[in-house]
Computed example of a mutant assay.
Amino acid sequence: MVSFTARAPKLCGIVTALPQAVSENADLAASFGAETMAKIIAATGIERRPVADRHTVSQLGVAAADVLLEKLNWARETIGLLIVVTQTPDYPLPSTACVMQNALGLSKETAAFDLGLGCSGYVYGLSVANAMMQSGGIFRALLVTGDITTHMISDSNRSLAPLFGDGVAVTALELSEDGSIAFDLGSDGSGAPYLISKTGGLAEPGAAELFMDGTQVMAFSLKQVAPSIERALTAAGRAIGDIDHVILHQANAMMIRTLGHKIKARDDQMVYAVRDFGNTSSASIPLAICDHLNRMRPQPDMSFLLCGFGVGWSWATAVWHTEAPACHDIIRVP
């Protein structure tokens, strides 16, 4: 594990783009039975999920970025860095970041690249973007996170079909001289077989198909998440009670609730955003930020505890005090 502190970036805004089409979990009763679906909905807290038809990560990302840049009144030539965190890229090559750089009309001096991470990807991406900004020469950055996961899941898969949604979030970051951010990052590749798409790559060509061992995922989460959060809090010099908003990867309500109790967070600190969106991979944390801030009174600044965990195994926690973002919108893309 790696724990460290750094000067914090300013969180200027987030826009999350979701497909307009929505799949109601109650409608899956026709395939899996009404009683079964009622139990799944009660346990997971997931009632509906955005589902992509022909959308790609870059299409949703460009739609979100266009809105974000307009709302912030940022000139496109001022963007020095574009990072795309995804496990469902538009193409095997080139990188989705290069596709987006061109589609957005960003400068050719913009550094653009992809990171191949899932559930932990938002915090990992935040750590990489911040490190590059702090090293000098980059004032503004866009962090793009999300996946089109439903294309990897058969409609007949009772275990996974009710859980996952599609979406892409774009976060605008600006170099700041104020505040600090603490990170804890870790990985354990021995968990790879338990949350994987074995097909779709060079090892096993073919259509990508997601497999998840839910028991192993829960065991991993209970083992690694709380210690990671404790290390990040220690690095930040904070206690859990000092945090305004605790936003964990939005896997399902039962897991979030269980982990919240384990880290001794208060109910009013915990953020839930699974009911209408499901598990949206690396978009889940910024989507939860948008959904939560849209429901609360405006605040001048706030402290976040962000923790992503899952496929890899991989986990990442950040303790971040920042000004409230100027925009935190959720848009639907036809």
Rank of each mutant, 00 (worst) to 15 (best):
73 N>I: 11
16 T>E: 10
333 V>P: 04
313 W>R: 11
314 S>C: 14
117 L>I: 14
47 E>R: 13
275 R>D: 14
170 V>W: 06
303 S>G: 13
116 G>S: 14
61 G>N: 02
311 V>F: 05
120 S>D: 03
46 I>L: 12
139 F>M: 14
233 L>K: 03
247 I>G: 04
33 G>V: 11
214 G>E: 04
206 G>W: 00
66 D>I: 04
271 V>A: 03
326 A>Y: 03
294 N>A: 15
278 G>L: 06
187 S>Q: 14
19 P>M: 11
166 D>I: 05
58 S>Y: 03
43 A>R: 15
245 H>D: 13
1 M>L: 10
148 I>C: 04
34 A>N: 14
103 A>G: 06
233 L>S: 07
244 D>F: 06
216 Q>W: 10
125 G>D: 05
268 D>P: 07
60 L>C: 06
330 I>R: 06
135 S>M: 10
326 A>I: 05
302 M>K: 09
273 A>E: 09
15 V>E: 06
296 M>P: 12
30 A>Y: 12
310 G>T: 04
83 I>R: 04
277 F>A: 09
246 V>M: 11
312 G>Y: 00
227 P>L: 01
45 G>H: 10
23 S>I: 09
239 A>R: 13
39 K>A: 15
3 S>H: 07
309 F>M: 13
66 D>G: 08
327 C>M: 10
295 R>D: 14
195 L>Q: 05
265 A>P: 09
43 A>K: 14
315 W>C: 06
167 G>R: 03
256 I>N: 05
320 W>Y: 12
86 T>M: 10
263 I>D: 09
136 G>E: 11
106 L>V: 11
150 T>R: 01
83 I>N: 00
69 L>S: 01
306 L>A: 04
220 F>R: 03
57 V>A: 07
118 G>F: 03
114 D>T: 00
231 R>P: 02
299 Q>L: 13
190 S>Y: 06
19 P>K: 00
122 Y>N: 01
44 T>C: 00
332 R>I: 11
333 V>W: 05
316 A>I: 11
76 R>H: 01
74 W>Q: 00
220 F>S: 09
175 L>A: 11
224 Q>T: 15
181 I>C: 07
302 M>D: 07
38 A>D: 15
9 P>A: 03
305 L>P: 02
109 E>M: 13
165 G>A: 09
161 A>N: 11
37 M>V: 07
109 E>K: 15
27 D>C: 08
250 Q>T: 05
35 E>Q: 15
46 I>K: 00
17 A>C: 12
308 G>Y: 07
108 K>I: 14
96 T>F: 08
220 F>W: 01
175 L>I: 08
171 T>C: 10
32 F>R: 02
59 Q>E: 15
2 V>M: 15
168 V>G: 03
26 A>T: 14
43 A>P: 02
85 V>S: 04
202 L>V: 15
233 L>F: 10
304 F>Q: 01
206 G>F: 06
161 A>G: 00
172 A>Q: 02
295 R>Q: 15
259 L>H: 05
43 A>Y: 12
117 L>M: 12
111 A>R: 12
